[in-house]
């Protein structure tokens, strides 16, 4: 469904990504793990067109979307939940959700999806008239995910959704990701919490300083000695 080929990104002459290849199949959860600065976020941002690719291609359903502006990529059905939630604090919860549906014009379908988001996250419905800035961190994360879902995405990319959340909420976030997959979504998940991510992932990639060093089914990576040592904190 989404194919990334030989992706390179430079920041002011410093290579952040050096030839990344990813394949994301429909209705899968694919995860990208790695240490801080390995290039996980850069990969997502390059796919979305937020940073310039110095080389490489992104194919979506066989179509080259490498050089499209972000707004067109969103309109095609790829959405990203940015790191740190980034809800519009000065807008209400409802307005945040409506903005998620900015590229759509079918009001009936938007209203239907709004109800769906509210039933997945009842807390948001209770607070629909509140400014998003007044929500707790967990609620803001739900809003960020709900907002992304409002674009009716084919592929949902999430950048560190569990970052900075209390353990109970982390668990909830991963349950939500599983639920989204059950509802038919395709998910590309970037996580520092490698164990949790690999547990739910169909397929995983391990990034190290801008390069892929390992890939395989989630369960297989979870059992891999090198992964255990480097990312899961297992003793030698």
């Amino acid at each position: 469904m989404l194919e990334v080929m030989d992706l390179h990104v430079n920041y002011g002459g410093i290579a952040a990504l050096r030839g990344i290849n990813l394949t994301i199949k429909e209705n899968q959860i694919v995860t990208l793990i790695g240490a801080n600065g390995a290039g996980k976020s850069s990969t997502l941002r390059a796919i979305m067109g937020l940073v310039k690719k110095s080389k490489g291609q992104v194919l979506y359903k066989g179509e080259d979307i490498s050089n499209l502006p972000t707004k067109d990529i969103v309109a095609k059905g790829i959405t990203m939940v940015p790191e740190g939630r980034r809800v519009f604090a000065n807008l209400t919860v409802e307005e945040n959700l409506l903005l998620g549906a900015y590229t759509r014009s079918d009001h009936k379908a938007i209203a239907r999806d709004m109800e769906k988001v509210y039933s997945t996250f009842p807390r948001l419905k209770e607070r629909s008239w509140q400014k998003a800035g007044t929500l707790s961190g967990g609620e803001q994360q739900m809003l960020a995910v709900g907002r992304a879902l409002m674009s009716s995405p084919q592929i949902l990319m999430m950048d560190e959704p569990s970052l900075g959340l209390a353990p109970l909420l982390v668990k909830e976030v991963f349950e939500i990701i599983l639920l989204l997959r059950e509802q038919g979504n395709t998910i590309l998940l970037v996580e520092q919490n490698a164990k949790k991510a690999l547990e739910i992932a169909d397929y995983g990639y391990v990034l190290e300083t801008g390069q892929l060093v390992l890939e395989g089914p989630g369960k297989a990576l979870l059992a891999d000695a090198k992964v255990q040592e480097a990312y899961l904190g297992a003793a030698r």
């Binding site: 979305m48 937020l50 972000t70 707004k71 969103v74 309109a75 959405t79 990203m80 940015p82 980034r86 519009f88 903005l99 998620g100 900015y102 590229t103 907002r147 674009s151």
Partner: peptide, 8 residues
């Protein structure tokens, strides 16, 4: 940036 992620 987030605004552009909304497709704006």
């Amino acid at each position: 940036e987030t605004a552009s992620l909304m497709g704006i």
